[in-house]
Simulated assay, not measured.
Amino acid sequence: MVPVANIMGIPFPKLTMDQTLSKLSEIVEQNRSSLFHVITGNPEIVMRCQHDAGLRSIVDEAGLVTADGIGIVLVSRMKGGHLPERVTGCDLLIRLLETGNRNRKNWSFYLLGADEETSLKAAEAIGRTYPNVTIAGRHHGYFTPEEDEKIVEDIRRAAPDFLIVALGAPQAELWIHTYRSRLNAKIAMGVGGSLDIIGGKVKRAPKVWQDMHAEWLFRLINQPSRWRRQLILPRFAVSALLYRER
């Protein structure tokens, strides 16, 4: 049993990135009958779970919740939980691609999200950089509810090892949960704006910013329109530190 750190009632397993990769590698090699849902838990999701019972239920039922952001890690340490490191959706996706490419297991990925041009560029970039993995299919993220059935059927036919959903939080989590019994994928996870980064639409913070845990600041400087979303960070820090875990 993996020990967990509770953040506002959400259990985050104390897993490093390497341990998370090992766990998912084992799962994808199994003949599972049900989809394994990975939620990259950021402060926005944790805060929303406090008043959204439906999302909280989805998080509670997930196979794995990772610490998506340094804020989650720092709060856990301040409260004695000591999560070892952050495991973000973008980093996890890239490491999965690297692992699949290196081990030549022909892992397959279905990409759902981003605009059409970015989706295509992301698929092309993955094909060039990781030739030993397969893009089983893709679809942009600007679809209507009426198109859900067509997309679900496309994913079902593709039967990917990994369904990568870049619809933003919590839309990705809700969409995966709604159709999880019909997706015919082994693992599904929301990855925020990762396809925008892989497709070259958004520039990721240089490694020095990442090492300083200031990636959020780099994004805010380069995308000032995000300031409203960033307000969640101080609210989360205060709320989480004052929260009395049951």
Rank of each mutant, 00 (worst) to 15 (best):
A125R: 06
D115H: 06
V133D: 09
L35A: 04
K121P: 04
R229T: 00
S181C: 10
V59G: 06
I39N: 00
Y110C: 10
W175Q: 09
V59D: 05
E147D: 11
L217W: 04
R228N: 06
P160H: 03
Q171L: 12
H213I: 07
I58W: 05
L97C: 04
L167G: 05
L21I: 10
G168R: 08
H51M: 09
L92N: 01
A62F: 03
A188R: 01
A188T: 06
L231D: 13
I70C: 14
N42C: 14
S181L: 06
I39D: 01
E215P: 13
L217E: 06
V59K: 09
G9A: 08
S108M: 13
P145W: 07
P11I: 03
P234D: 10
Q230H: 12
R48E: 11
F162I: 12
V38C: 12
I232A: 13
H37A: 00
K79W: 10
M78W: 15
G127P: 02
V46W: 05
L83W: 07
N42R: 12
P43A: 05
S34F: 11
V165S: 11
G200Q: 03
D154Y: 12
A166L: 00
V46A: 08
L96I: 03
G137M: 07
K203V: 12
V208T: 11
L183E: 00
L93K: 03
R219F: 03
V73M: 07
A123C: 10
W216N: 01
T40F: 02
L96E: 03
R95G: 13
I151G: 15
G137S: 09
E116R: 10
G137R: 11
A172W: 04
E29S: 08
G199W: 07
P224Y: 13
V238Y: 13
K150V: 11
Q19H: 02
N132W: 14
E44H: 09
P43H: 02
V191I: 04
M17V: 02
D148V: 01
W216P: 01
I198M: 07
R246K: 14
K105D: 14
L174G: 03
G127K: 04
H213M: 09
R235L: 14
G141V: 02
I221E: 02
Y130N: 07
C90W: 07
P84T: 04
Y130W: 03
H140R: 03
F236L: 09
T20I: 12
R138L: 11
T129K: 05
A122Q: 00
V38R: 03
K201D: 09
T178L: 11
I198Q: 01
